[in-house]
Design a protein around this nucleic acid. Structure first.
Length: 879
DNA sequence: GCAATTACGTA
DNA sequence: CGTACGTAATTGCC
């Protein structure tokens, strides 16, 4: 029992426990999508969390070995020499584990030349002397010697680390028959196989205990060794030096000099955001709430000493005219929050540095506030787009949008999911946004009102601005905020989709899928769920006995590439039937989701997620209009359902051709590639002619396919292995192709190399327009993480610059259409393509704007080529 | 009911 | 062992 009046010090041997967890947990179940093994980290943290929860330590530290070498190996070179090489899968986990502990504000201690247990011994001794209850958690038996009335050992059971056994003095006596301080004497006599310390032959615990009880101490035993009879007595006399050596080596040091004292180990509040970040990276979803629970306890404790968070002022609710007058007089920026109900404004709230006000949206409020809302008076929002849309539905065109904290937060940290005001309040203000609990009918806590939300928004904006690099700020103001307004209008406009065209096709595909399924069942003689990879594996690899394919986490892959390979090596009708079934059902899925998304206005309104990618691209959801099939004949029928809407004349599509390769030419300034784009020749033909040293007219389709794959692959960091795989050629041939390619376009390789190197130095990549993406993993000692980061870093400036260019073109077009009073409007953006709905009589004017704005969006050393199409539906217009 | 996994559509 | 996304179905866990 612990004395609750005393503080509790918990010291943990990180290395030995993580190592046990590593072997106890199946590595297959603990691997991130990046390939990082996490079983040791996970097992250790799960144990530590349970331990903290159960023991509630007031002071805490985790110690690590720095390497296998220590003063002990210098004294006895065979110490631990029999241990097998530490698996590399484990080694890489230790730095990540230490990152986790740092995020949890847990003190990590290690010291060259000493083992973790020496640090534990030193801290335990200090702690006990200073009146702490001390808990030592270690997987090394030598720590038994530390147990006293004040020091308890927590030792893992044989299996894993989930169960810890408590050793106090009585428990040690019960288990080993001697007092804790005598345990090293026993160990010295018996020896420790795991440390490569042989003891006295034929002497086990029983004999050792008997001797010690008989002689009273190890010294007395060794002095009186001549009096010990029998074979074991002879053995003892012969191995007396080994015993002395063992006893020296297994004595833990209690006077290691450390940079901290026990009082410095007081439990600190966790950095909640850092914990979430690193746990998310390691994909420890289930651990996050468990840590949060702990953090809650700690924050309560910490709150006693730290100042209470500022409380949001109660917003006043003035008359509409007073509110408008107050806004007009506001000197600086005003934060605005519009709550939306049924797509329309419901409540509006405003906050300046020193006051907040709010109102319920109605005709009178709308009339009073519209002039200010549509003016250039500076306004800050949190996630403006949905609010901009609501206002626009109410007839108000928002002006003066100068900051959006969600977009700005994303620009600074595009990889982190700070997608709500609450996240940002947490991260930048270190406060909790009051939120109503949606699971409770009568919430215990009130949610913040719009005025209060604005107050938080304004304060977050100030913090975010401080951290915003100038180049990123310019991306926000010059690209993202204008784009936001254009996106709002695109979403509101939607695109007309014909239910009639879709529903017929859908049932046709359903019938086809059904028929294929029946054939497939006949082929294999039973019914299976063709949508279940698990059941398919049984059929393919156990019943049809086809060769095993690429491994996945849960078995063997059955994806299309794998099935195509199988079909080639082991042709079987089932494979084809499965592929066809997949194709039909997938197509039907897409059609169905599209069909159900058609609104009462006959149009589909997607949502563009402006913060949806790490590179600067948009993403599209509910439904995703950026992955509508295009490659096959069947998919054309889907695009035919995207029609010009009532009151409009035709659709226009405009796409950038080879924009990423053009950006590559610009950034690398490769003379060959620049010439390719300035020559007017087909890019792949031109490149093929150079690579294969033939005349452009002699470039065969096969040659063109190869250089095309190579060119596109470059942008993604493709390897010779990947290239050979894709082109189904020998790796040696792929290697040769890459050599020839770089011999002719060497500046491309130089650029790619130097851009990754620069990113390693800076810690981030930057697009032509200054958009940044951090890459902390470029310096990771973990090869998987590092190489993944290198490929992403290679791609980010190219994909990101293309996204910048498209956004610039988009908002310019949007702006020009309005400025020239055209009714024509942009409907969709598919990364390098725009779809525009042209009002009657406006083709020439609209086409000119689109062509010029896209062509002039960036000033590169190569031209931006824009392809324009026209037609009554997306399929026709897209040609 | 939720999360993980697999597969697949786009640029 | 190719970047960036979103969706849907199955499956296993809580």
């Amino acid at each position: 029992m612990t004395d609750s009046a005393k503080p509790t010090l918990l010291v943990v041997d990180g290395h030995s426990l993580a190592y046990r967890a590593f072997f106890a947990l199946p590595v297959d179940n603990f691997t991130t999508k990046d390939g990082q093994h996490t079983n040791g980290i996970y097992g250790f943290l799960a144990m530590l969390i349970n331990l903290i929860k159960a023991e509630k330590p007031t002071h805490l530290a985790v110690a690590f070995d720095t390497s296998r070498e220590s003063f002990r190996t210098r004294e006895y070179s065979d110490y631990k020499a029999n241990r097998s090489e530490t698996p590399s899968e484990f080694k890489g986990q230790i730095p990540l584990l230490q990152d986790c502990l740092a995020a949890m504000s847990i003190q990590v201690l290690q010291k060259p030349d000493f083992e973790a247990d020496d640090i534990l011994a030193t801290l335990a001794t200090q702690g006990a002397a200073q009146g702490y209850n001390v808990l030592v958690c270690s997987g090394d038996r030598d720590t038994i010697q530390l147990v006293t009335d004040d020091v308890t050992l927590l030792y893992p059971n044989v299996q894993g680390v989930s169960q810890l056994k408590r050793y106090d003095t009585d428990a040690v006596i019960e288990r080993y028959g001697v007092r804790p301080e005598q345990y090293p004497d026993i160990a010295a006599l018996v020896g420790e196989t795991s440390d490569n310390l042989p003891g006295v032959p034929k002497v086990g615990e029983k004999t050792a205990v008997k001797w010690l009880t008989q002689f009273g101490s190890l010294d007395a035993l060794l002095d009186g060794a001549d009096g010990v009879t029998g074979v074991v007595g002879n053995n003892l006399r012969e191995h007396i030096d080994a015993v002395r050596r063992n006893r020296t080596l297994n004595r833990l040091l209690t006077d290691v000099e450390l940079p901290v004292t026990v009082t410095d180990l007081e439990v600190q509040p966790m950095d909640a955001q850092a914990v979430r970040d690193i746990f998310a990276r390691l994909e420890f979803k289930s651990l996050i709430p468990r840590v949060a629970e702990l953090a809650g306890i700690e924050q309560q404790m910490a709150a006693v000493t730290s100042a209470a968070a500022m409380l949001a002022p109660v917003a006043v609710e003035p008359s509409p005219s007073d509110l408008a007058a107050w806004l007009d007089e506001a000197s600086g920026e005003v934060a605005v929050t519009v709550t939306v109900d049924g797509g329309l404004p419901h409540r509006v709230g405003f906050s300046t540095a020193d006051a907040s006000a709010e109102a319920t949206w109605n005709a009178e409020v709308a009339a009073s506030l519209t002039p200010w809302l549509s003016s250039d008076a500076p306004k800050v929002f949190s996630d403006a787009k949905s609010q901009v849309k609501a206002l626009r539905r109410a007839g108000v065109v928002l002006g003066g949008l100068t900051f959006d904290i969600i977009v700005a937060g994303w620009l600074m940290r595009p990889s982190f999911p700070d997608k709500t005001l609450a996240h940002l309040v947490d991260r930048y203000l270190d406060e909790k946004l009051p939120e109503a609990d949606p699971t409770q009918l009568v919430p215990e806590t009130e949610g913040a009102t719009p005025g209060q939300l604005s107050w938080y928004t304004l304060r977050v904006a100030a913090k975010v601005r401080e951290e915003l690099a100038p180049s990123v700020a310019s991306v926000l103001h010059d690209i993202e905020l204008p784009t936001l307004q254009a996106l709002a209008d695109m979403e509101l406009a939607g695109v007309a989709v014909s239910h009639a065209k879709l529903s017929g096709f859908s049932s046709e595909l359903a019938e086809r899928a059904d028929a294929i399924a029946q054939d497939a069942y006949a082929t294999i003689g039973r019914e299976v769920n063709l949508g279940s990879p698990k059941q398919l594996q049984e059929v393919l690899f156990e019943e049809l006995l086809l060769p095993k394919t690429r491994k996945t986490k849960t078995g063997y892959s059955t994806d299309a590439a794998v099935l195509a390979d199988l079909q080639e090596s082991n042709p079987h009708p089932f494979l084809d039937q499965l592929l066809q079934h997949r194709e039909a059902t997938k197509l039907r899925q897409i059609i169905e989701s599209l069909d159900t998304a058609i609104g009462p206005d006959g149009r589909v309104h997607t949502t563009y997620v402006q913060t949806g990618s790490q590179t600067g691209r948009l993403s599209s959801t509910d439904p995703n209009l950026q992955n509508i099939p295009v490659r096959t004949d069947e998919s054309k029928r889907i695009r035919e359902a995207f029609e010009v809407g009532d009151g409009y004349e035709t659709l226009l599509t405009a796409d950038y051709s080879q924009i990423e390769m053009r950006i590559m030419a610009h950034l690398s300034a490769d003379p060959g590639l620049v010439e390719a784009f300035n020559s007017g020749e087909d890019l792949h033909r031109f490149v093929g002619a150079r690579v294969f040293a033939v005349d452009p007219s002699e470039v065969t389709p096969a040659m063109r396919t190869k250089v095309k794959a190579m060119s596109y692959g470059l942008v993604y960091g493709l390897s010779a292995f990947g290239l050979s795989k894709q082109l189904r050629i020998e790796q040696s041939e792929a290697k040769q192709l890459m050599m020839e390619y770089f011999a002719r376009f060497g500046a491309v390789r130089d650029y790619l190399r130097s851009s990754v190197e620069q990113a390693r130095i800076d810690g981030y990549t930057e697009t032509i327009f200054g958009r940044r993406r951090p890459f902390p993993d470029l310096t990771s000692p973990n090869r998987v993480l590092r190489e993944n980061a290198e490929r992403a870093a290679l791609n980010a400036p190219i994909q990101g610059s293309a996204a910048d260019i498209m956004k610039i073109a988009l908002f310019h077009i949007h702006h020009d259409f309005a400025a020239e009073n055209l009714r024509s409007r942009v409907l969709m953006q598919i990364h390098d393509e725009l779809v525009v709905e042209i009002a009657p009589g406006e083709w020439d004017a609209a086409e000119k704007i689109v062509r010029e704005r896209m062509g002039d969006a960036a000033d590169l050393t190569v031209p931006l080529d824009v392809q324009i199409g026209r037609g009554s539906d997306w399929n026709i217009a897209g040609h």
